[in-house]
Simulated scan of single mutants.
Amino acid sequence: MNIESFLSVMSAMSVFVSLLLAFFLLTVKTENKLANRLFTLYLLFFAIDNIGIFINVDFIKDHFNLEFFRWSISSLIIPVFYLYIISVCFTDFRLKTKHLLHAIPFILTNLVFALRLYFLDNAAKIHFYDHRSEMPELYVFQFMLGMQIVFYSIGTFLVLKRYREIYQENYTNAKTSIFKWLFQITTVLFILYYLSIAKNVLRYTHTEALWIWANVIMQILVLIITCWFVLKALNYPELFRGIDSKLQLARDILPKENENNAAIKGSQSDLIKAQISTLKQYMTEKEPFLDPSLTIQELSNQIEIPVRDLSVLINHHMKQHFFDFVNEYRIQKAMHILKNPLKSDLTVLEILYEVGFNSKSSFNTSFKKYTNQTPTAYRNAS
């Protein structure tokens, strides 16, 4: 088997696995249907783009306009992935007319192709296709795709940054696997896309052997990553749970809460001290942290402090994320149980559930953060 044939086989396998995952996402039961549909759309666009490696040349020559249109679809891949990330992060996300702006590169590309390619005679199309690497339209198109990768990579990581900040300030026992999955998939995909930029530069260096081997390496990576997606989807079909994007961060609330009057500031300081004391007493006596799904809104309702004030109180005045604030009480209770000889028969797994955690990895991470020891080592040392 020569390199070109091997490349075609790898590409065909990637397309097949992508379509298999797309079918799975359309049929699996989930509350976040929009996210699954967007990821399905991403996989379909990816598959359409990837079939160009093994598609029959005779078929292309009989359907040039279809091939040119297929090229333009690659400009939709990254925007759809960006919308997918937003839809997973935020439960209140809905597709709106304004999101059609993400399709502008696709529309402009097809307008250019309509003026320059779609209505050419067949001989002119053959000439363009055979010399496509030398055509200015393809130079501009490749540059545009490269700019897409840069801008959307920045935008996607900013979305993830906001998601993490909101979760830490408003929720406890966050499903860290959600953020890890989104961060991993984003990092891996954009590394792949930046490598594709480097690979496309080779197209214009007239080093055909290097270009072919670069394609082989890329296809191997694509196949590995696509199979990884499938394994994740099969093992964690209910992986995603979003948050409300309208929740404010403490730093966004603070400017509206500040007053210049010194007397008012003094009274506010006394109020803050009283609220902190009340909050700590409530956490110790009522132990609301035992609820594994406790949110700042729920704690606000229980303690009768407005959620905005409570957010500023914990995240700004107490210098802790709500996530860390609650988990500290859980760890303290776990430490007390681990020291108690009357409860030595309880396993670490039973203890973590008893104190409000619902994940062993999250419990171990938090416990080590506060004690510099694992739960088992702490118990043995007591």
Results as ranks from 00 to 15, higher is better:
Ile178Val: 15
Leu26Ile: 12
Tyr193Trp: 11
Phe39Trp: 11
Thr205Ala: 06
Phe183Val: 12
His63Val: 07
Leu34His: 05
Arg241Tyr: 04
Glu169Trp: 10
His131Glu: 09
Leu254His: 00
Ile86Thr: 05
Trp181Met: 11
Val15Tyr: 04
Tyr193Asn: 08
Ile337Trp: 03
Ala263His: 13
Ala47Phe: 07
Gln302Asn: 00
Ile305His: 00
Lys161Thr: 03
Gln219Pro: 03
Ser362Asp: 06
Met147Cys: 03
Lys199Glu: 08
Val140Leu: 06
Ser359Asn: 11
His131Asn: 15
His206Ser: 15
Asp49Glu: 12
Trp228Ala: 12
Phe113Leu: 08
Lys199Pro: 00
Trp181Leu: 13
Ile253Leu: 09
Glu328Trp: 14
Ser300Val: 05
Leu26Gln: 13
Phe93Gly: 01
Phe128Met: 04
Cys227Asp: 11
Ala47Thr: 07
Leu290Arg: 15
Asn36Met: 10
Met318Gly: 02
Ser75Trp: 03
Leu76Glu: 12
Thr97Cys: 03
Gln248Gly: 04
Ser11Pro: 06
Ser362Tyr: 01
Asn173Ala: 09
Tyr152Arg: 05
Asn258Tyr: 11
Lys199Tyr: 02
Leu342Thr: 04
Lys265Gly: 12
Ser8Trp: 01
Lys161Ile: 03
Asp252Ala: 04
Val140Cys: 03
Lys333Leu: 14
Asp252Met: 06
Ile314Pro: 08
Met283Tyr: 05
Glu137Ile: 12
Ile272Tyr: 10
Val15Pro: 10
Glu328Asn: 04
Ile314Asp: 09
Leu271Lys: 07
Lys343Met: 13
Gln297Glu: 15
Asp345Gly: 05
Ile104Thr: 09
Leu290Trp: 07
Ser245Thr: 01
Lys339Trp: 01
Gln142Asp: 03
Tyr42Thr: 15
Leu271Phe: 02
Val201Asp: 10
Glu350Tyr: 07
Asn65Cys: 07
Phe106Leu: 13
Lys232Pro: 02
Leu7Gly: 07
Leu117Tyr: 12
Val9His: 08
Ser245Met: 01
Ile154Cys: 06
Tyr329Gln: 12
Leu138Phe: 09
Leu202Gln: 14
Ala233Met: 02
Asn327Trp: 04
Ser366Trp: 00
Leu101Pro: 06
Phe289Ser: 09
Ile264Glu: 05
Tyr82Asp: 08
Ser366Tyr: 00
Tyr118Gly: 01
Val230Met: 15
Glu328Ile: 04
Ile154Leu: 07
Leu223Ala: 10
Glu4Cys: 05
His336Thr: 13
Ile55Asp: 10
Phe240Trp: 02
His206Lys: 14
Leu182Glu: 03
Ile48Asp: 12
Val230Arg: 13
Phe141Asp: 07
Ile224Met: 07
Ile264Ala: 02
Asp49Gly: 14
Phe54Val: 02
Phe59Thr: 03
Val326Asp: 05
Gln148Met: 04
Tyr204Lys: 15
Ser153Val: 09
Leu7Asn: 11
Tyr204Ile: 15
Lys343Ile: 06
Leu342Met: 06
Leu115His: 15
Tyr163Asp: 10
Leu25Gln: 13
Ala123His: 14
Leu138Ser: 09
Glu350Asp: 10
Gly356Tyr: 05
Ile126Met: 13
Phe54Met: 06
Met144Asn: 02
Ile53Pro: 08
Met283Gly: 04
Ile243Ala: 13
Pro306Ser: 09
Phe46Glu: 07
Asn258Gln: 13
Ala381Tyr: 03
Ile253Trp: 00
Asn110His: 08
Gly155Ser: 11
Ser74Phe: 07
Trp228Phe: 15
Arg94Val: 04
